[in-house]
């Protein structure tokens, strides 16, 4: 009993401090947390809800006239979206895009970072800044600039490539994905390079010194120390690129103004947008939410597959 009596005041003093920590901890975290709920959590919940409903006319005759009301549709919106071949066509296109674009971009970014981190280069800071510059250019504006660079006559080089299947070379069906991949690579390579450089600079110099003493050459140090130690950064960069690729929107939307054959469902994100804005059938909140959720699920599955494959490779 006496131990309890002694413990009580101690515990109370501790809990007063704990209360202070709790109140102020939450007070500082709350503004962000509430907005996070509004911008991230609430849309997810509301889209799950609205994906289960659809708009339907009630009453009225053959020519409408009835009121449009929301009725429960069950999984109908999902079935419509998941059996739509143009949805899977779009998914296929962005996956093809990612399979080629992501390794090329990450490879170039890593190569540049390794060069700038080596003794081979004087003034790496200037190079780093210049390579990073395209990132400061809005994706939409980059797409407009590259888009005009792909149009023969305006472009300084596109004339030389002629046409392919009746379309200007860079805007032709077989090529346009590569043309867009080039835009994305141009914008984001510098950013990824910066991430790799930061990871490289965090490697302690003693490791290199020890390797030198053991007789390792510069190439061996790169292959056996530097590259393995930036794997974590590479994993994150690839994961973020996969998620970014699934949502490809700006580039195809701009390209579509130059190559109208692309239609308004070239990528899943374009399909979701045009479904929402009533430029496709079925349209409206329900079908658009279903397309969005389906896309998010595909993105999640791909990210998990990639993460698992990486873990298995270790």
């Amino acid at each position: 009993m006496s131990t309890q009596a002694e413990a009580a005041p101690v515990r109370r003093r501790w809990s007063r401090q704990a209360r202070h920590q709790m109140i102020y901890g939450w007070a500082f975290a709350l503004p962000f947390f509430l907005l996070f709920l509004l911008v991230f959590a609430a849309p997810i919940i509301s889209s799950i809800r609205s994906s289960l409903f659809k708009m339907q006319s009630t009453g009225g005759g053959l020519f409408g006239g009835g009121e449009r009301v929301e009725v429960f549709a069950g999984l109908e919106n999902f079935i419509v979206a998941a059996t739509n071949t143009s949805f899977w066509g779009g998914i296929g296109r962005v996956m093809l895009f990612g399979v080629f674009q992501i390794p090329v971009m990450i490879g170039i970014a890593l190569g540049l970072a390794l060069l700038l981190d080596s003794f081979l280069v004087r003034r790496p800071g200037t190079w780093r800044l210049l390579y990073f510059l395209p990132y400061a250019i809005p994706g939409l504006i980059a797409a407009i600039v590259w888009g005009y660079l792909y149009v023969p006559q305006i472009s300084p080089f596109a004339d030389a490539f002629g046409t392919s299947g009746g379309q200007p070379f860079f805007l032709a069906p077989g090529i346009i994905l590569a043309s867009m991949a080039n835009m994305t690579t141009w914008t984001f390579t510098g950013y990824n390079m910066l991430i790799f450089l930061a990871a490289l600079q965090a490697i302690p110099g003693d490791l290199y010194e020890a390797a030198r003493i053991d007789g390792a050459s510069g190439l061996q140090i790169t292959a056996k120390i530097k590259i393995p130690l930036v794997r974590g950064a590479a994993l994150l960069a690839v994961l973020l690129s996969i998620i970014g690729t699934i949502q490809l929107f700006n580039e195809p939307t701009v390209m579509q103004t130059l190559a109208s054959w692309m239609g308004n469902d070239y990528t899943p994100m374009m399909m979701a947008y045009n479904t929402m804005m009533g430029q496709m059938t079925p349209s409206g909140a329900g079908p658009a939410s279903a397309v969005s959720i389906l896309m998010a699920m595909v993105a999640g599955v791909l990210a998990v597959i990639y993460a698992l494959a990486q873990r298995k490779a270790d």
């Binding site: 889209s47 658009a288 993105a299």
Partner: peptide, 13 residues
């Protein structure tokens, strides 16, 4: 890691 563009459609709603 949330696909932010996909969120834009429900956010608009």
């Amino acid at each position: 890691l949330m696909p932010i563009a996909i969120l834009t459609v429900p956010l608009y709603l």
